[in-house]
Design a protein around this nucleic acid. Structure first.
Lengths: 340, 340
DNA sequence: CTGAAAGCGCTTACAG
DNA sequence: CTGAAAGCGCTTACAG
């Protein structure tokens, strides 16, 4: 089982009695060949089970036909679904996928973007989930060919693709207001992040448009189960200062419900809850959770299309922001405030 | 913004006044250099922001320092968690990860294994979830450097790593038997697959060891939500021929519970349910689902270690099978059979 | 239409 | 200790 040399273009060329140039051209489609020759070459390829060496091809062509995808955490179902959609799209287009998980460590983000700058991948789909001090943005601006997805890197001038977070917040708020809620807690991610800002803005707007007094209390932390637990504890410690909670991710909702249930707080009798993301099996929860659904797969598909469609030579075409629509999935976790 | 030529080894060498050989050796650590020279080179690298071109390096070295991971479906939380664990391990070792989703299409599996044979990746972690007609096995045997994870490819002679499925089935069966169940339905994946065979065997063994009459009814299909729904419908159509159901994956459990709930069948009052996998938020389900937990991350970590540790020259060391322990997580979906 | 040859950017025997 | 040179396996002007 010695690492037998793989068959190369040259082997094929010899077997077919032509030059490597010809074989290479046939493979790359830039050629009309006499069908006799063509058949001979194709036979040689089959006989030798030839497959081009991608490393050589990449070196020679100066591009890799692979795109990089950096996400905070692959195990998170939201990102997993996104990765899955990107992979499927990439595969359709003959592109390979290089996957990087940053696990929320800024250093890793930096190094991946640097890698792109060096042509290791042909483009990058970039998803962060923590604030940037400007370093990342400037790096992105000088390397180009990255599209930012899901969460913003404010000073980066590249195409951006988000869910319609503001409208998501609005839908949640309207649903809550329809049931008579006026005091609601927004349990979200880091305050600096665009998703949190926009979702809570939308929420406020929906409550405000009723023309009656209202209050939004912000619990801002991170998009994690642990923060969801914290939010629930705080809510309890503060003696339930609201009649409803808008949990801004599946993870937050999971932690929140976990603690609320453990403490015997009934949803929606004592407090109503609306979630965000809706990628987990929320319909099986007790109670089934009403939530804003993000178009996760569409986000992944569109992100790749954007990367490929963008004319990277035209600076003015770069600074775009595209929003994908969200919807509310009504289940059973919202009821009118109890009259206690 | 023309694609400015990236700085190469040669640029660094010139800037430092040495040969590319010297720089290359310094980078690859096979060299003691006078510290003055060393500093000069390092300064040049820093000044020029040099980073080696991985495509050239791969071509030259004949290896890629990347490992391939093929999974049926990335969006599935079980596989997502596995991918996440592998990615983290790979990153620790300086290995890149190439990800492929087969979406259950045999043709795609074949082509990825072929790619490995051509040295595009240094090794492959392979996860299938459908029966093989022998084609895959023979391909795997002739390319080598693949470890099979989670589900078997029977005729392949390579290291294999599974969860202890038999024991998982046994734990489920024992728990059910402890509560007095004697007639249970096994709702699992394809009958040919090792996971299904072993889990149902374990289940039977646990029931049998009580020394009383028992019956296991097998519903075999696939590890999907849709099959879970089918299983529930069949269970209902057959007028509930058992007092408990062992759902052999989170997906199956989800589909099953969905339909049972919709039909007003109470768990665990009318039928007990035990799940398998336990990667989703089963503790928030109504009722919280008792399940066998798979060591998903450990599976990923160990798989990579196996790939790296195996001595691929020694045929006798290849045919190994390693089992990772599972455990039962008791929640609230099992009760004694109703006396109706 | 077809091929010889240079080049992509590294690594690594082989010499000095 | 250090370097010139060949080689990895492709692609692609450039000639014929």
């Amino acid at each position: 089982m010695s690492p037998k040399r793989a068959t190369s273009l040259k082997d094929v060329a010899e077997a077919a009695g032509v030059s490597v140039t010809t074989v290479s051209r046939l493979l790359n489609g830039s050629l009309e060949l006499p069908s006799e020759t063509k058949l001979r070459i194709e036979k040689a390829i089959r006989d030798l089970k030839y497959e081009p060496n991608p490393h050589a091809r990449r070196l020679s062509r100066g591009r890799s036909d692979t795109i990089g995808l950096v996400v905070p955490d692959i195990a998170n179902p939201f990102f997993a679904t996104l990765v899955s959609a990107v992979e499927e799209e990439a595969d359709k287009r003959g592109l390979a996928l290089s996957l990087y998980a940053t696990l929320n460590r800024p250093g890793r983000e930096i190094s991946y973007v640097t890698a792109l700058g060096r042509n290791h991948v042909d483009g990058l789909l970039f998803i962060t989930n923590h604030p940037d001090n400007g370093e990342l943005a400037s790096l992105i601006n000088q390397t180009g060919k990255v599209v930012i997805v899901d969460e913003d890197v404010p000073d980066a001038v590249v195409p951006k693709l988000f869910s319609d977070n503001d409208h998501g917040g609005y839908l949640a708020g309207r649903h809550l207001a329809d049931h008579g809620h006026r005091r609601v807690i927004y349990a979200g991610g880091p305050r600096e992040m665009i998703s949190t800002r926009r979702r809570s803005q939308g929420l406020e707007r929906a409550l405000k448009e009723r023309g009656e007094p209202f209050q939004v209390i912000r619990y801002e932390g991170s998009y994690t189960v642990e923060f969801g637990r914290e939010a629930a504890r705080r809510f309890l410690d503060e003696s339930m200062p609201a009649t409803a909670i808008f949990a801004s991710s599946d993870e937050i909702a999971i932690g929140l419900i976990e603690v609320l249930r453990a403490q015997g707080v009934s949803i929606p009798d004592e407090v109503s809850v609306v979630g965000f993301d809706d990628v987990g099996p929320l319909h099986l929860f007790a109670p089934p959770l009403t939530a804003i659904r993000q178009p996760v797969r569409a986000l992944g598909e569109r992100a790749l299309a954007l990367l490929l469609e963008t004319n990277w030579q035209e600076p003015e075409s770069l600074a775009s922001e595209e929003l994908l629509p969200v919807e509310i999935v009504v289940r059973n976790s919202v009821a009118p405030p109890s009259k206690s």
